[in-house]
Simulated scan of single mutants.
Amino acid sequence: MPFAPNFPVLLRTEDGVRIDAAHTPSRRAAEGPELGPELGPEVGIVVAHGFTGSWRERTARRIVHVLSEYGGVLAFDFRGHGRSGGLTTVGDKEILDVEAAVRHLRATGCPKVAVVGFSMGAAVAVRHAGLRRDVDAVVSVSGPARWYYRGTRPMRQVHWAIERPVGRLAARVVKRTRITGVEWDPVPMPPHEAAALIAPTPLLVVHGDADAFFPVEHAHQLYEAAREPKELWIEPGYGHAEAAATPDLIRRIGKWISSNFS
């Protein structure tokens, strides 16, 4: 099945960064209610990718295609990624990018908006929901609970890319990811502390027991810090973020969003 069509959107953040995005209308509106329970035109879903990712990648487009069964989807590139402007701060100012996406969906007539984040995008989604408090549901997939984690080889490689000039150059050349060389000051609130501020907005934490970046303890820390309503899914055999997400898992996430908006 071909991917659902998307329409280009140019967002502008509160601090003036240009964000490259695309809107995929709900397939239910085009194909009828046989796709599932009627959610109505008000449902919007923001998809926030992981570090060095892009909404233009096939894995991300596959996720958007499935989620469009449950509402209109706005996917975007974080600052410093792909065709967006600016430099990535790896989870700090990126909450402004999510805010711009949420604001766009609200402006187009979506009073109900969910944010689904993957890896770095999950950390940003949780922080945005806790600090801005203007979404109606949030999903953290493969997200970290705390900063500076170096307990796995992939995360040590990520820190090398972030902290060393040669690493930042490699990320720019190979992944089109432009990383700031300025250290956090102050250090932003960690995701597990932000998770405690999300209620009464529902939170879903999804994590794989085969995640090579963040072990499942991160998911448990997020879940335990949060207040009800919340859910925790530990997925057997699931690896990390978008690349490992199956259509079945994404469909279950879409149904969870549907259940909280019905």
Rank of each mutant, 00 (worst) to 15 (best):
V158M: 01
V73Q: 07
V47Q: 02
G32R: 01
I253T: 05
G85M: 14
T246R: 05
L169P: 03
R133S: 13
G143V: 00
E193T: 12
V66L: 06
S26N: 08
A101K: 04
G44S: 00
V64L: 07
R61H: 12
W256A: 07
P215I: 09
A226I: 10
A199I: 15
A101I: 01
T246F: 10
R150N: 07
L169T: 08
A129P: 13
E38S: 00
F78K: 12
S26A: 03
D136K: 06
I179H: 02
F76C: 06
P191A: 12
A194E: 10
L203F: 04
I198H: 02
G36K: 02
I45C: 04
S84Q: 02
P2C: 02
H192P: 00
A123H: 11
E99N: 11
I179Y: 10
A212I: 05
F214I: 06
R251W: 08
L249S: 06
H104Q: 11
D211Q: 05
S262E: 14
G86I: 05
G143H: 00
G239A: 06
R103A: 15
A171Y: 10
W55F: 15
W256I: 15
P144I: 15
R132K: 13
A219C: 03
P5L: 01
V113A: 05
P37H: 09
R227L: 08
V206A: 06
A161G: 13
V158D: 00
A129Y: 14
A129Q: 11
R62E: 15
